[in-house]
Write a protein that binds this DNA or RNA. Structure first.
Lengths: 233, 233
DNA sequence: AACCCATTAGATACGACTAATTCAAGAGGT
DNA sequence: ACCTCTTGAATTAGTCGTATCTAATGGGTT
């Protein structure tokens, strides 16, 4: 991913991060730097750097005379892409997907509305291209090719919104969509209705119809919620 | 704040973080660990820990033979509370407030709808209490007391949504509201209409009327957008 | 109960060594 | 004369081990 075991401390994080985010150490658990350094066979300097990173993610807290204590889940930086990846790779993947899909359902419609106002001609073209790619791969078990265009579509929408906060959710959406295709539902071809909605969103954005783009995207995200049995009646 | 100059590396971060997020080093700028260590009069070990943290925020990238290069703004972890604080304290504070308010306008209505479904009796009571506190302090230049209740109100909504991602935006909302009160508009008493809306949201949540809670909250956030001249018609 | 001190584990510093990457000079081919 | 590939030196972060400092904790003393 974006963070391949970059250096020794990176390797340590790749093991320790998932362990912590998976909840293997209950909140309040104490880890000692010396022990960790021994366990991973690295020097304390390296171990301290890793601890600093975990600390900046609010996963742990390092105090003198006490050690490195694991913080409760409620304090974690759950928006940190690294934390998200670790949790998606762990055992509370379902819950994580629910949370993220809910976030999508809140943000993406608004982003689509903004995109309809701010999208450049180039972005509109990209959007249409993505939508066509989705249509072309919507039948015949071409799930991978479909996924690529689906991810690209949502990325363009988020970027075109002109809001940096929305734009940075592109990676998150990509993870969610990939997760849905690879692990959860989706054994068959995607829902034709969803494909149509994407095409219509592309049209609405190009036409500058913000209200319609927002409403159509809301339908898409409602569909995503229903797939995960997140009912909202 | 949550991270008061904890240790030497914390002190370094408190200076270097704001400098980078303020854009004082253009993307691609190269910093050398040795020089930085000299500048802050700390050991290389401490400097390396600070760099690791900045790296985990995707503010910089550290490569051998090159140095510590500043990454473009588009790659920063803009959801990291620390980064948000640094940027709010810096010169692109207005833009940051716009981005965050837009995020609020997307998330809070959805969160309010969920809160109407999931809120406990205790949370409903808290909500009503907050709303009453806002009413009580809405006249007579009691802006500070008003702010406290306003922040608490939105925190309860986000918590009661039952979604951890939404809940973690409580701090962000707090920063935005505090910023609005202390620096920007708001020289006079808050808008009476906004106060009324908060009371009505509390009622709707208690009544379990999700659609109404969502719509009322949307009106609140639209008001916040208008205050910042973010027009959306 | 209040105070003091020994213990402990992280915090900082320093120096030596390692390894990766860049850049440039030079060999060889076109 | 130009281009390409190789090679090697310089540079800078990465790693490690040790020594010292500091602050929390817990027990013991008054």
């Amino acid at each position: 991913m974006t963070t391949p075991g970059r250096g020794l401390h990176g390797h340590v994080l790749e093991t320790l991060g998932p362990e912590i985010t998976a909840g293997e150490y209950p909140p309040g658990s104490v880890l000692r730097t010396d022990e960790l350094a021994q366990r991973f066979d690295v020097s304390r300097s390296v171990m301290r750097e890793a601890v600093r990173v975990l600390e900046s993610m609010h996963l742990v807290e390092s105090r003198r005379r006490v050690g490195v204590t694991v913080r409760p889940k409620s304090q974690w930086n759950v928006y940190d892409p690294q934390v998200i990846r670790w949790r998606l790779a762990g055992k509370d993947r379902p819950g994580q997907l629910r949370s993220l899909t809910l976030l999508r359902s809140a943000v993406e419609p608004v982003a689509a509305g903004l995109a309809a106002r701010h999208a450049t001609a180039e972005q509109c073209a990209e959007l249409t291209e993505c939508a066509l790619g989705m249509v072309a791969n919507s039948r015949g078990h071409k799930l991978e090719a479909y996924l690529v265009h689906d991810v690209a579509f949502h990325r363009v929408i988020l970027d075109a919104s002109g809001n940096e906060m929305f734009a940075r959710l592109g990676d998150v959406v990509a993870e969610v969509l990939a997760g849905r295709t690879h692990h959860d539902v989706m054994f068959e071809d995607p829902d034709p209705a969803a494909v149509t909605l994407h095409v219509q969103v592309a049209e609405a954005v190009r036409a500058g119809d913000a209200a319609r783009a927002e409403e159509l995207t809301r339908e898409i995200t409602v569909g995503a919620l229903q797939e995960l049995d997140i009912l909202a009646p």
